[in-house]
Design a protein around this nucleic acid. Structure first.
Lengths: 139, 139
DNA sequence: GCGACTTGCGTTACAATATAACATATTCTA
DNA sequence: TAGAATATGTTATATTGTAACGCAAGTCGC
């Protein structure tokens, strides 16, 4: 069953990895149109959702954007957080199972059964903060 | 300077408090049109953003929705998290400064300066989970 | 008070994000 | 291969959000 759908997912994943940044669904759509001029939004959303289910892609809720899970590493349901630089737009994924466990525990005491954690921290990344302090100019 | 704008903010806040749930901007818009038939989206968004700045309203990023801060309590920049029931749609706001401090600390070690925390946990609230286990029927 | 300036608000129009619903193609089973 | 079941493509539209312009209301100098 390596069908068009899976090829599309692979294609979408390549685009996201190539960019290495958070892309909107329509950014992905534009990129895909280089190869497949006739692609429509639902195709992209279906591929993105399938990839999210598999764990190869994360949705960044506070940006309405998508990013390739850059690795290898962790199990995806359990403890990844996003740090989002509002200056350069970079998004980093970090593992933080403790934080997630804290959260689940805290809410569990109130009878809330946690299923999906959206943890996204906006701020300024180390690159941008050193740049900003180094040069005092405003273009 | 108690102008139309502030009246509008008060009106929006009343709507959100009356509903006691997360409403989309367009839900608010529809509610406002009962009194002001000619209101347009930017008016609502301006009022919502002003209220968010003041701390009377929170945006729920993962729902693209808005909710009245139901209280009294905490300082808003520091440690509120949302628990969102995917069954009944209720949204609760909880204070969790430890979790936020953990997060900021963790990211700070990597040179990331945290400014805004989006912490939203989806799951099933206590009401819905007791209901669901009590009655084993599927409609 | 009266006109010029500034600021904020309303309105129109449109941009960006997402999905419903149906049409077509593919795969599976027998 | 026929027919059922599923997956994909397409069209259209729903939902969410904002840019940009113009009017109105306050402000300041006179």
């Amino acid at each position: 069953m390596t069908t068009r759908g899976e090829q599309m997912q692979a294609h979408v994943l390549r685009v996201l990895k190539r960019e290495g940044a958070a892309l909107s669904a329509y950014d992905v759509l534009d990129a895909l149109r280089a190869d497949h001029p006739k692609i429509a939004p639902p195709t992209v959303y279906r591929a993105l959702n399938a990839l999210i289910d598999k764990g190869g892609v994360h949705r960044v809720e506070s940006l309405n954007a998508f990013i390739a899970c850059n690795s290898d590493h962790h199990d995806h349901d359990h403890g990844s957080i996003m740090s989002i630089c509002d200056d350069c737009g970079s998004v980093e994924e970090n593992a933080a199972p403790e934080v997630v466990n804290n959260l689940s525990g805290l809410l569990g005491k109130a009878g809330f059964e946690a299923q999906r954690h959206v943890i996204e921290v906006h701020g300024v990344c180390s690159d941008c903060s050193t740049e900003n302090s180094a040069e005092g100019r405003k273009p």
